[in-house]
Write a protein that binds this DNA or RNA. Sequence first.
DNA 1: TTTTATTGATTGATCAGTCAATCAAAAATA
DNA 2: TATTTTTGATTGACTGATCAATCAATAAAA
Lengths: 204, 204
Amino acid sequence: MPKVGMEPVRRKALVDAAMRVIGDHGSLTVTMSEIAKQAGVSPALAHHYFGSKEQLLIETVRHHLQRLRDSTVTAMRAAKTPREKLSAVIHVSFHADQFAPETIAAWLAFYAEAQRSEETRRFLVIYARRLRSNLLANLKALCPREDAERIAEGAAAMIDGLYIRQSLRSAPISIEASIALTEDYINSLLAPLSGEAAVQRTDK
Amino acid sequence: MPKVGMEPVRRKALVDAAMRVIGDHGSLTVTMSEIAKQAGVSPALAHHYFGSKEQLLIETVRHHLQRLRDSTVTAMRAAKTPREKLSAVIHVSFHADQFAPETIAAWLAFYAEAQRSEETRRFLVIYARRLRSNLLANLKALCPREDAERIAEGAAAMIDGLYIRQSLRSAPISIEASIALTEDYINSLLAPLSGEAAVQRTDK
DNA sequence: TTTTATTGATTGATCAGTCAATCAAAAATA
DNA sequence: TATTTTTGATTGACTGATCAATCAATAAAA
């Protein structure tokens, strides 16, 4: 059945298969055979296109991080005010796909891998910076730079922390609750800073 | 030089060696040989005492989690007020030992492992619950239960998130900054709740 | 015919786990 | 006290399984 132009199709299939297998397995100690099988090709073909297991793994991270980035860009573009853009970033982070147990398990595995693979680490650093920077840019429109930096750091940490806690699957927090917790954090830290010193809250 | 009563000595040496090797390596794909070498014994002896690699890994998690628990109990006992106890919990979480890159790398590896090993997962769940519960107990003395639950959840997530972000070692956050961020979160969410609805803040 | 896609079979390396043998301390016995 | 027996500690050498990676061969397009 060999037809020309299969390369991009196979690459994508393999990269998706890798994510799925890693997510199910909850670890990077998956075999090329498993990945290839999931993608419906032979292990040899996976090697043919990616050269090595490590390279396939790296491409897998890259591909899925790119996807996340695209979602974020789209969501931010749809939002108008800085405050709405902030919410958009948060929403994308907790979007159903991202927050599925298998996806979280896969990301966790990649974080662990980043301790050893310089290239994997690089991609995850880019993600971490991007998250922080997306938050920061919009926060700066709402409060002084120094405060914005603090809050961005804290919000990014909270998002990542909600992920890792989710990975344990004990007392799982719903998507809505996760979003609420993060929004609440931003609101609470922003409240005393908005406008002048006056505190405008709606106490019952 | 075989002397009687070596068992507990060897077990501890192996469990410590495992933590160190895993931390350096940044992954659980370390060999029994490496661990045994680090502990100064033969691989066969490690098997003799632990039966399997998996069991050694599980004991390693247990042992180090127990250590963390002891630190927390001691620190909380030394603190007097609920608010001070909260700070104590936070401080222990970011204590130098815990926050060292190798330690963080090791914990990350165990979180990944927890996706596959039910027993490892159980221990980490216990840790997660304990952290949340230590926070919650003291928060309940400072605000209504519902709010306390929210804040405990958020603070626990922030602590774990600061860990995972630290693992990437890009733009590392200092111990002090991590503590400040977490304290700041608690203060900010507590502020509008303390006492009656009146907002008592010290705006410049 | 040349190029691209694809695989089955094979290799070489790595490791967890096993086992029989050794060595020295402790306990029992003479 | 001197001698023998038992037991715990320890290892080197080995095995079996697993897996990434290679390669030569095949089959279908171009």
